[in-house]
Amino acid sequence: MALPRLIFVTGKGGTGKSTVSAALAAALARHGPTTLADIDGRLRAAALVGTIPTGPDSVRVSDSLDALALSARTELEAFIRRIVPISAISRRMLKSRTFGYVTAALPGLEAFLLLERLRIMAGDAALEDRFIVIDAPASGTALELLGVAAGVKGIAPAGTLNRLAGAVESFLTDPDRFGVIVTLAPEPLALREALETASALRDRLGIATVAAIMNRTPQPLFDDADLRALARVGAHARLARRRSREHKFARAALEQLRHAGLETIELPMMFTDTIGAGEVMRLSREIEAELLRR
């Protein structure tokens, strides 16, 4: 399976974006250099692989995996430092009011600069055959973020910003450089949001590579005969039906996702007391096996 250089992981809140990002990065790191980047400021995925990056500088996790944290605000600060001819504009000078004026005057600029950073990172990654996994915000915020380039073109009809906006747009629509994974859990709301997000990514933003990871599918345990025989064990039957329902829903969801043209990897529900490094390792093996199979 040919993967894009940079894989952007989004999905409905609570469907395990960070866990999936961490597991995907760990899977890729077994085959080559990989970077796990957080852009929502929560640093969950990095914590799951055992590190807490503090900024855009890579922190080493293992020989082939490193982690870093990006933020729109940091990118805006860096951009301002580049364009403002004041030597050493201090952090203190860039107080909230300055940012307030700039974001109000140029809505979407901060988010746009973050995308520009992703574009540059993907370019650098291609040179060293590295993959980048982004633990991104939930679908709504992610769609807004990915859609800002068009807005920036509108604001700045010419000049440096306009040129950069064009470059960002061709990055996002290039299947070799950029792809999105939408995470979901086997439940109606998450499925609907995943399908809507995927179609917005493709139709509205022209993003070519979109796939899905359905997280938390319980392994089947009961067949129909079991469920019939259970009619008289009250509460236990309810719990058995719950598992069976989730499993069946996952089957139907998989069908719908495929029908929508989304390649989907299914990950098992981790029936464990916590989600930690061990669980991420197990999930990364599942992902790796699926990627090698395709």
Binding site: P85, I86, I89, T98, Y101, A105, L106
Partner: peptide, 25 residues
């Protein structure tokens, strides 16, 4: 100094965008 910074930043943006942000603000 924050206000000087705001002024300098907006003026710089005016140069790279060709807009009149300083005036608008």
């Amino acid at each position: 100094v924050v206000d000087l910074a705001a002024r300098a930043v907006l003026a710089a943006f005016d140069r790279v965008t060709g807009l009149n942000l300083l005036g608008d603000v």
